[in-house]
Amino acid sequence: MPIRRSNTAYLFLLFPLGILLVFTLIPTLLGIGLSLFAWDGGPDPSWVGLNNFTDLASDAKFGPALRNTIVYVLGSVPPMVIIGFLLAAAVQASWFKGRVLVRTMFFLPTILSIVAIGYVWRWLLEPEAGLVNWALRLVGVVNPPDWLNDEQWALRSIIVVTVWRGIGFCMVIYLASLATINRSLYEAAEVDGATPGQVLRHITWPQVAPTTAFLFITGVIGSLQVFDVVFVMTGQAENDATNVLNLYIYRLFTYGQLGYAAAVGVVIFTITLLATAAQLTWTMRSRRAEQGAA
């Protein structure tokens, strides 16, 4: 039942909404506008229309940064979500021993600062004294790569670290979602003689579809904005092999090319909106198709 009108509500909202207005909403509108100007932070920005965007098309640094960002998103989000799902399904089984312990261990990296994680992985991936290459030599790999300095491997290494860190989060969310599945579905499947693989494929996976959609959408949004892990692992020197859009924006900002930086920001924002809209449409279409089939 709704409660009678309240003016105190405005009092409660005044400060938090004021903060969002001043530090997020207004700067967003101004930032989008700034993408149409050339500005070094001095007294007079000059109007350049869409020139910042047409310049991006021929910018030798923007291309690799865009490509790397997309590779990063596609390389990290699907494995993270799928491994998270399989883990949650395994741990959720009634015969699994030590569910809480395993959940804690997988979740731990999620909360640790990327600065620390980036450093420890740089050390693990160090070519001579690093633990990873030590293990590889132990199993007979003669000449393991210098992961972070090898153009072929640097971005892939960063993607692996991202997946390593993210699966615990996906797993915990899937566990919560799995706990809400109606047991009778499983019992019916058992009566029908379904194998565990079939149950996983035809009951569990469709039942957690909303969670999968949530993880994909938020995962794509978050990884399009990747900054920390790249900055710490390879980003302190400029290089095209692992440059990503946000790192490029940060550099443009430090060089004082503010209008151009804003234009790259608008590109990220646009890609984010398009990717989110596409995923939402796809989610709703497959949900409708499922209902039609049922």
Binding site: F23, T24, I26, P27, T28, L30, G31, I32, L34, I221, L224, Q225, L245, N246, I249, F253, L258, A261, A262, V264, G265, V266, I268, F269, T272, L273, T276
Partner: peptide
């Protein structure tokens, strides 16, 4: 929805 990279300058 808005990434910080759009609004951090202002």
């Amino acid at each position: 929805m808005v990434p910080i990279q759009v609004y951090f300058i202002f």
